[in-house]
Design a protein around this nucleic acid. Structure first.
Lengths: 170, 170
DNA sequence: CCCAAACAGGACCGATTCAGTCCTCTATTT
DNA sequence: AAATAGAGGACTGAATCGGTCCTGTTTGGG
């Protein structure tokens, strides 16, 4: 699967919603956000607390309090949202600096360095998409190029970059 | 985390090992592979059965049997190994065609299309790295470019593609 | 000054998923 | 025929995760 957690998924939805109506710095309460997104209120609360702790949203307590985005939507990469909920992005255990050394096969598996590079590619893909990008769908919905599999020819150079940078803002 | 399963991780290690000594089509038994990689024998067996069912390795039963890679290492993307163990790569539930429609928020979340594109980027990153790439570490270990986070400037165009295609085979 | 609104922080449990093992069957070689 | 080796699937213990709840603390309004 290589899937992000549900909480992180919800977090992106919530943050994108905030990004879409980031007007005059208005705050939105957990109750309101739960109502408009359909996500259960306690879960919304938990997620926003995480985002606030990581400086992605700005919170205010008390009556008339609530949350709003702490930065401009263009400046908040999706990767930051995911990391706020799940910690550093690491496709394998040995791919991140934090958990490197925890693998018992380290040193003799021979693929650690390769994983670190794959991880960098994935991380940058997520880093290259902002909340502003998430909020405006439908720009150049170009048909995705079919990809060769086992036994096929050498594969597309730059394919990842094409989608991440060109397609998106094309 | 955004992490692949341990089984998929082991699978890549095993397949890479096979790729590294793909000579004269020799076969390797589960016992031997377990011995050289340090992974427990039953686990190695389970993984190779999955890889065989997906046509990634070629198996032969009986005395003098064993496994070998079914294609040239350059033609086997890491993505194929992961998919053999975990199913289609899908960063979120709504990102893959198979499980699309299972999300109760579908239609009103507004980020489904964006996720599908992110998923395509990640999938291609994994598709662009072959077992041959995994087997030869150390080619152009260029320092990774630091990436701007929340509040930073607009980010690197083509970064993902640079790493996936250029750095790796550069 | 007090009450209500709203977030902060963390404990907690139930369910799901995953890793790992085992058993039986089939195929191949000697 | 016997030994070797994979095929296929069932099963279980553990770890993780999603979701809820409870108790503070802060803020604004009457």
């Amino acid at each position: 699967m290589l899937r992000i957690s549900k909480l992180a998924d919800y977090a992106v939805v919530l943050a994108t919603w905030l990004a879409a109506r980031e007007q005059r710095g208005e705050r939105h309460t957990v109750r309101d956000l739960a109502a408009v997104t359909g996500i259960h209120q306690p879960t919304v609360g938990k997620i926003l607390k995480h985002l606030a702790r990581h400086g992605i949203v700005d919170s205010q307590r008390g009556a008339r309090g609530g949350y709003r985005l702490a930065a401009r939507p263009e400046d908040v990469p999706v990767a930051a949202i995911i990391e706020a909920l799940e910690g550093p992005i690491a496709v394998t255990e040995c791919a991140s600096e934090e958990t490197a050394g925890a693998c018992e096969y380290e040193g003799r598996c021979g693929v650690q360095e390769s994983w670190q590079r794959i991880n960098a590619v994935v991380g940058r893909a997520l880093e290259s998409v902002s909340l502003a990008d998430m909020a405006k769908p439908g720009l150049s919905p170009r048909e995705l190029v079919p990809v060769a599999r086992v036994g096929g020819e050498r594969r597309m150079a730059r394919a990842a970059g094409d989608v991440a940078a060109d397609d998106w803002h094309g």
